[in-house]
Amino acid sequence: MMQSYAAWEKRVRSLAEALMGPDSEPTRGHVLDFLRAGEHGLAIETLADWIGDLEDPAHVAPADRTRVLDLASDFPEETQIRVRHALADPACG
């Protein structure tokens, strides 16, 4: 990772807490648990999967989707691919 793990974790934690409301508590808990365990790839993939599974994609602004992609950019290509796939808009493909 280009940035420190602590800074990266803080960005992911902040984004997860900002986007995920009480109805998403189990998934948010998984993201935070993965961060605590040092499973950074699983944390960002879980966040991306949650966004991709939303019934209303407009719930997450394009800028926030871009932030998730940016957070995944330092990971191996397979993680980046899974994150991009999770965030893909099915209406566009």
Rank of each mutant, 00 (worst) to 15 (best):
M1D: 06
M2F: 00
S4T: 15
Y5A: 07
A6Y: 05
A6D: 05
A7Q: 12
K10P: 04
K10N: 14
R11Q: 08
R11D: 09
R11A: 13
R11N: 08
V12G: 02
R13V: 10
S14K: 11
E17N: 12
A18E: 03
L19D: 00
G21Q: 01
G21S: 08
G21D: 10
P22D: 08
P22N: 14
D23L: 05
E25K: 14
E25W: 07
E25M: 04
P26C: 06
T27N: 00
R28P: 03
V31P: 07
V31Q: 05
V31T: 15
V31L: 10
V31S: 08
L32Y: 06
L32G: 07
L32H: 02
D33K: 15
D33G: 01
D33W: 10
F34M: 08
F34I: 02
R36L: 14
A37W: 08
G38L: 06
G38S: 14
G38Y: 03
G38N: 07
E39P: 02
E39Q: 13
H40F: 09
H40T: 12
H40S: 11
H40P: 03
G41W: 02
G41E: 14
L42D: 08
L42M: 12
A43Q: 14
E45R: 06
E45I: 06
T46C: 10
T46L: 04
L47Q: 09
L47K: 04
L47S: 00
L47A: 09
A48M: 04
A48P: 09
D49R: 09
D49H: 04
D49Q: 09
W50D: 00
W50S: 09
I51Y: 04
I51H: 05
G52N: 10
G52L: 02
G52E: 01
E55K: 13
D56I: 12
D56Y: 02
D56K: 05
D56R: 05
P57C: 05
P57V: 09
P57T: 03
A58R: 13
H59P: 05
H59G: 00
V60F: 08
P62V: 01
P62K: 08
P62I: 00
A63I: 14
A63V: 07
A63T: 03
T66M: 10
T66H: 06
R67C: 02
R67S: 07
R67E: 11
R67F: 11
V68T: 01
V68M: 06
L69M: 14
D70M: 11
D70P: 00
L71W: 09
A72Q: 03
S73N: 11
S73H: 15
D74K: 05
D74Y: 15
D74C: 06
D74W: 13
F75D: 11
F75L: 15
F75P: 03
E77M: 09
E77H: 13
E77Y: 07
E78H: 12
T79Q: 12
T79V: 15
T79S: 13
T79E: 13
Q80M: 15
I81C: 11
R82M: 01
V83I: 06
V83E: 02
A86D: 03
A86R: 04
L87R: 11
L87E: 00
D89P: 01
P90W: 13
C92L: 02
C92T: 06
G93N: 07
